[in-house]
Design a protein around this nucleic acid. Structure first.
Lengths: 194, 194
DNA sequence: AAGATTAATGTTATAATATAACATTATGAT
DNA sequence: ATCATAATGTTATATTATAACATTAATCTT
């Protein structure tokens, strides 16, 4: 329902465009019209699934949309509750299967330290991200962290270890939450983000 | 019971000795007399708790010993089962409390990706480790990873994020498990390790 | 388009991990 | 010895995740 129809609202930078581009996802910590995040995440997903020849079914798309309802990580049972509001039945396996699919497609990540899931802002292929988790506002920002990955691989190798994947989760305070409680910050920072 | 009495078996390198030293923990992947790991882990713990003025009670010490029964991460319910064999009653809170204490003292780490716990080979103060987790033999090796920590902190800062702690868990194959199945490898590699 | 095949979802039950809340016991301090 | 605190016991329950099998939907073949 929500994935198509919105191509018109995408801003395309003429400098970098070669193929119909989708607006990049802004930082979790900067004020932005959050609907753009949702929209472009769904657009990306649609494109990726089409390319890969896999099916972005209604449930899967809805779960992805729900995961993107904010820049906070959402638990599987939170997602279940949201699906229930939609009128869908949805037992745990429904949600976990959708999440498994979305993870396999590189569209969402699981945050191990939170037992929760977050949308990937630069999906494409499966990859390990590097997550900055604000202990105050709970927002999660994914960094690409190629340097970090490379260093970890180097040091692993130096120990004779052959890395296949890695989990990097950083807890701390996001830019907004470092200055103690203007209290406006988290509140109207993002439009429509719940 | 097992923590004292064994000081005699400690080998001290006269080159590096200044204070009654405790033998360092060898790599999880190299063959070694594993009893030394257990013994010295308990010695370290005893010393640390004494210094900090906290109590290494029987349960806490036993849980630490159990965590050190191998270089594999052990789940809380595995630990419970072992305690039960000892004749202790031990409901979940018993184990989780002991683990919480041991984590606070920097004596064990929780591996988020495994929901399991591992002894720290270089305890002293609380710290975030960097864990190499073998997908084949399940052994976990902690690296110090100062460079990695520093880089993560740098890159976090570059995003305006103020890091307080981090989780780094690397999955892959340990040196032994890279060469496919000599099959002797894991088996008698370590003495008495279960 | 009908039937076969595969993929996805529904459904029920349960496993695995973790914590809350309050009662009791042990320890250390005065 | 008494008090205060810390640790543990105990019961119950919350939270997260998966197994196993039934059903439905989508796609492919002819």
């Amino acid at each position: 329902m929500s994935a198509q129809a919105i191509n018109s609202s995408t801003h395309v930078n003429p400098m970098t465009e070669h193929t119909p581009a989708i607006a990049p996802i802004p930082s979790a910590y900067s004020p932005h019209n959050h609907q753009h995040c949702v929209t472009s995440a769904l657009q990306r997903a649609s494109k990726i699934c089409k390319t890969q020849g896999v099916r972005l079914t209604a449930t899967r798309e809805r779960v992805l949309e729900l995961v993107w309802q904010s820049h906070r990580a959402l638990g599987a049972y939170d997602l279940m509750a949201e699906l229930a509001k939609d009128g869908r039945n949805s037992a745990p396996p429904t949600v976990y299967r959708a999440l498994e699919f979305l993870q396999k497609m590189g569209l969402v990540h699981r945050i191990a330290s939170l037992n929760a899931f977050i949308g990937c802002p630069h999906p494409g292929e499966q990859h390990s991200g590097c997550f900055l988790i604000c202990q105050q506002c709970q927002r999660v920002q994914e960094m690409k962290g190629h340097n970090i990955q490379r260093l970890i691989e180097q040091e692993s190798n130096a120990s004779g270890f052959s890395m296949t994947s890695s989990i990097i989760e950083v807890a701390g305070l996001c830019p907004n939450c470092q200055t103690p409680s203007d209290d406006k910050q988290g509140q109207e920072q993002e439009q429509k983000e719940r």
